[in-house]
Structure formats: C-alpha cells, structure tokens
Design a protein around this nucleic acid. Structure first.
Lengths: 280, 280
DNA sequence: GCGTTGATGGAACGTTTATTCCATTCTACA
DNA sequence: TGTAGAATGGAATAAACGTTCCATCAACGC
C-alpha cells in the first residue's frame, strides 16, 4: 500500500513531530532519501539556515532529491519542510489563524477558546525558556545587591507592568521587606516618590510603549539620587540608561498579547533573593 | 567628519556587538533607518529568517531602505547583515543539557540568585504544562459564554490574585470590554459591587487561603443574582460551589511561592476570548 | 524664496533560488 | 539474463530574491 501524502495524515508543523516522523520513515525510504533523513536529524540547523543547493551539497545529494524527500514526508516542497526546521529556532508562536487552519486540515476540532489557551500557554513557556538562557547572572546579582541594601524599595510600574509591581508589593510585604508601591492612584505618584532618599532604591518596570508616568517617576527618583534597578525590553528604553543595573526581558507574544510569565518569574526571584539577603 | 564605512572600524560579526552598534547609531540616523533599527532590535528573529521583502513590509519601509540601513552600518548589503542575525540563532543552544552544564560549571555556590531563577522558571513551566493538560474545555467555553454575555464584568480578586485581576482590567479596557476592577481601595469593595445586576457577571479569583473579602464580595454579587465564574484551586474553595462555572488551577510552587504563570495564561485566554465573542 | 543636499519610494535589473522534467541508471523479479 | 518499475542525476525553467538606479520629496542654509 502506498503511504503517500494523499492518504496519510498531513505533515507535522512542529519540529518534535517531524523529527519522530523522519526517524520512523527513514528505514524504508530509498537510499538517497535515507541519506537526507540522517543528515536532517544530525544537522537540523543547516537545513534551517541553508539553501536547497547548499544542503544538497553538504549532504551529498542533488537539490531535486531534497524536494522529493520533502514530498515523501507530505510537504509541498523543500521550502515547506524548511519552515518547520526554522520554527524550532524562532521565537514566534504560531498565530491563532495558523492554528485554526491546521486544525481544519487535521479535521478534528477543539474549541476556539482551547486554541487561544494553547497559544498563550506556549507563549508563556517560550518566554520563560528564553529568560533562562538569556539572563545575565552578573547583572541579576547586582540588582539584588542594590535592592537588598536599600532602606525602602519603591516599586514603579504602571499599566501593563502593574500586575508585576503589585505582586512584588504583596510578596515583599509578607517577607518583611519595606516597600512602597507607587500606584499613581489619585494622581499622587509624584507625591508618593517625593520623599525618596539616596538610601532607598527604585525598581522600575516598563515595556514598549513606555508609559510616560513610569518614566517620569523613575527620573524623579533618580534626580533624588536613589539607586535604581530597571526591568525593561530594549536598549532603547528610557529607563535603561538611567539605571544602576538593568535587566532585559523579551516576552514572546501571541496575537499581539505579550506574555508576562518571564517578568513574573524574574520578579519572584528578585523578591525572594532580596528577602533572603536581608534576612542575614 | 564623515563616519562612513571606509574610515570607521568594520561592521561587527557577532550579534551582541551589532546590537550595541545599532543602539548607539540609531538616534542620529534618518527617520526610516531609525525605524528599521528599532524593528531590528525588537524582532531579531524576523530579520534572521525573513526575506528583504517580508522584513520591509513588517517594519513599514521599502526593501531598498533595508539595504541602505545595512550599508550605513558598514555591511555590504542586507544579506550580509542578515548573516549576523542568523549567527545568533545558531549559537543559541537552548538545550536542557547545555543549561545544566552551565549551572554545574558555575558551581552550586556561585549564584544563589541564579538557582532561584532556575527554580521559579521551572515552576512556571510546570504550571503551564499542567494547565494545558488538565483544563476542562467545556467549562472554559461555558465561562467565556457567561462573561461574554454580561453587561459589565466585575473582576474580584485580592492579595495574591490581584495581579491577575488588575491585568484583566487593563487588557479588557484596551479591548473595549466594560469592566469594574473591585480593588477594595478605601474599604469600598462592598460599595463597588453594590450595584451589580443580574445582567452582569463576576469573575472571582481566589486561592488558599481564600481571602475573606474576596469570598464575601463574591457572595454579595451572587445574592444580587449576577452570573458568576470562579477561578480557584480546589473543590473545597468557598467560591467554587456558588459559581455558575468554575475552573480549577493548580499552580506548582517553589520554596513556598506558587507560580502565577498558569493563572495568567488562563486570564489572557478568557480576556481575549470574551473580547472576540463580543466583537461579533 | 531659491538652491542644494540628503532622504525616500518605487520600478527595473540581474542573480539566485526552488522546483520540474526527462533521460539514464539502478534494482528486483521472472 | 532480460525486463518493468522505481530511483536518481542533472539540465531547464520560472519564480523570487537582493540590489541598484533614478525621480521625487523634504529640510536647511544662503
């Protein structure tokens, strides 16, 4: 029985499944295709970055063989297969539309809300994974130093960052770390931070588009010579250059909504680390 | 003096240096080139994998501008610049083994904070993974129904749950879903919810130990015959039996601190799903 | 207000790309 | 050993790509 792409299920769109498929099909594939299969498993990066010509040469086959290999697996062509190899290295989470389309092709239906949940879950996982890889441990330690030696920690972060600062205020309160949550209620942000002294420290959190209140509050604190730690998402951030230590967080996004998982994990880390260092 | 590519040092071949260069040069670059610069820093993956045409469209410039940008930085053209963006992804080995090795090399005692971060990151990942598996899709859909057909959504969740409700208030505000964040400021929680009607709905979020204010606010809303959705962590939760739909979330914990990643992902899902359903 | 310089958009160009097609070579079985 | 069918190599092709060029536009100094 021919196991061709018309009858069998459609080709996998995520790398893990494709890997499994290649491993399973390899033994009963023609000689050259087996050759490609083992090359693909050994050097996935080459497939992701290379061109059909370069991969063909490296793996010792003709470009046309690559196309045949891809089609044998159920893809349209080499480019189609390559997309899957690229998705592994890419931060981008497949969009809602892509998920919907895939779902329709696979026939079986989950609810739309379920798809959204999958998307947000994957986005969170990716963000956290990136955080682990990209965090600068030296700066992290430095940030803890600054906050731990402060008299009072001022937490500045509004709008999208407010969930983070409000969590930290809650957790620090429980752990006995003196803190002020600058929430800007009743427009009193400036007054809340007005008495900050050089012995205090600010933790400023802001992401694109940088809320102007957060920025001006951070600047006000800086001008009163308080120490400052920033958590932000780019070197361009107005709160990066004025900080004594700044940590970069790049959250993945899904449908335009950025995850908060990485920032939250970092916030918990800072909170507990500061509390622990103070405890001694 | 012209700072062109003939005189100045050659363009960087590693991503970190390129990043710094872009950040440094961006402010005094022409308008469109600045636009490309910020796009490049925000979506490096797109540059790595995209084509000149796709990057141009995404960043809102012409393909030729990309070439100009690359040349302004000292590269031969867009392809040359792209190589550097790709090298970053090649080097990045996010494998589990690699991380363990790094951790071991730096030694157990090297960075206590690093260990904390690993702990919280892993906890977040575990929580999210559990959520994907354990969520009851039928109830999830039901919850979206209830919230989507409400006149106004009242968000009730204090203390540890407050970051979640405050995020939802922010996001719903942006998406045009009418909502009231019951924050209990000035002890006015009861007053905030006092005018709730049967055409409204409450989203109550509470975890052990169930904050008494959250519970009594939820009960007050229920007695006024509002619809109710609960997010909580056990069948024994006081806000589970009185809800029209209740979702169970069990967050993993590390050193006694529970993750918020799963609840956050669920919150985002509900928010977007409700906004979408209302949109039609 | 005019002229110059640099920035920008967009079409045209030549190159490279993935893919297709066909002739040739293997392989399996009679 | 001869033959049918699959597998393969390699040239041909058409699409897509990055790049270049030029006309137009905006900014700035005289």
């Amino acid at each position: 029985m021919a196991d061709d792409e018309n009858k069998s299920e459609p080709a996998p769109r995520d790398f893990a499944a494709l890997r499994a498929l290649i491993a399973a099909r390899a033994p009963n594939l023609p000689r050259r295709l087996t050759q490609v299969a083992s090359y693909a498993l050994e050097y996935p990066d080459e497939i992701a970055f290379g061109t059909a010509a370069s991969v063909a040469q490296e793996s010792g086959v003709q470009p046309s063989t690559l196309v045949r290999f891809s089609q044998a697996l159920g893809y349209e062509g080499f480019s189609d297969l390559q997309d899957v190899f690229r998705s592994r290295l890419r931060d981008k989470v497949p969009s809602y539309e892509e998920r919907l389309r895939q779902l329709r092709e696979h026939g079986i239906g989950a609810s739309k809300t379920g798809l959204l949940l999958e998307g947000f879950a994957e986005t969170a996982e990716r963000s956290v994974r990136d955080l682990r890889v990209k965090i600068d441990h030296a700066v992290l330690d430095q940030a803890v130093d600054i906050l731990a030696s402060a008299d009072t920690v001022y937490l500045v972060g509004l709008r999208r960052s407010f969930p983070i600062t409000s969590y930290m205020a809650y957790a620090m309160g429980k752990l006995g770390v003196r803190n002020v949550l600058v929430d800007g209620i009743a427009g009193l942000g400036a007054e809340q931070i007005g008495f900050i002294s050089p012995r205090d420290a600010v933790l400023a959190i802001s992401f694109t588009p940088y809320a102007s209140e957060t920025v001006s509050l951070a600047q006000a604190a800086k001008s009163r010579k308080a120490k400052m730690v920033s958590i932000t998402d780019s070197v361009f951030s107005p709160i990066a250059p004025i900080a004594d230590a700044w940590l970069e967080i790049v959250e993945a996004d899904f449908e335009g909504f950025r995850s908060m998982a990485a920032t939250m994990a970092l916030a918990m880390t800072l909170t507990v680390a500061v509390a622990e260092r103070r405890g001694r």
